[in-house]
């Protein structure tokens, strides 16, 4: 029994501490980052309402569909090319979006813009025309109209934007031009 007590005492006392110096260890850590290709949109074609006539007494409009199906005239507006050709330029605005393959993105476009006119006779300024009902169509959502798209395996998508040009009665002959600005961001 005496030996038992002696052994227990030794265990409780432990051993003298060793000086520890020069003991090194290396860990291979890692730093990670994903740098995404910036997303950009490049204009490929303008939103073109073509040539049209307006009524002296009735307001009208022409609507260009974003899916490229042509123009729809209403009220006092009519195609100036009827029977004479020259309407081939009617088209929605088109943009190419490029960025990181497979990433989704959001396109922001105005709902309405204003077109400034330059009189054909004399070159003076004509009253502005309103363009509204701007609609966005994305190739990545074929058949649907949405503001959220997804870049394909090549990191690309296409955007088309249509709208409605409102033509008041008695609109004077002029060339009209507007700026349509869109913004694409990763979502």
């Amino acid at each position: 029994m005496g030996r038992l007590i002696l052994a227990f005492s030794l265990a409780a006392m432990g051993t003298p501490a060793f000086a520890a110096s020069g003991q090194s260890a290396t860990a291979q850590g890692q730093a990670q980052a994903v740098i995404v290709t910036p997303i950009i949109a490049v204009a490929l074609g303008d939103l073109d309402f073509g040539a049209l006539t307006s009524s002296r007494t009735a307001s009208g409009s022409v609507t260009v569909n974003p899916d490229g199906s042509g123009a729809v005239y209403a009220g006092g507006a009519a195609a100036a090319c009827a029977g004479g050709g020259g309407c081939g330029g009617i088209a929605p605005a088109r943009f190419r979006v490029s960025g990181e393959a497979g990433r989704s993105y959001t396109v922001s476009a105005p709902l309405a813009i204003s077109a400034t006119g330059t009189l054909i006779d004399g070159g003076g300024r004509a009253p502005d025309l309103a363009i509204d009902a701007l609609r966005v169509h994305l190739d990545s959502h074929a058949g649907g109209v949405t503001s959220i798209g997804q870049l394909d395996a090549r990191g690309e998508d296409r955007i088309a934007i249509g709208g409605r040009l409102n033509v008041p009665a008695g609109t004077v002959p002029a060339h009209y031009r507007a700026t349509l600005t869109i913004m694409v961001t990763y979502s």
Partner: peptide
Amino acid sequence: GAQLAIPLPVVVTVLA
């Protein structure tokens, strides 16, 4: 773009 995986070695030495 790129996916970066940068080695990050860390060395610890017990001096005392």
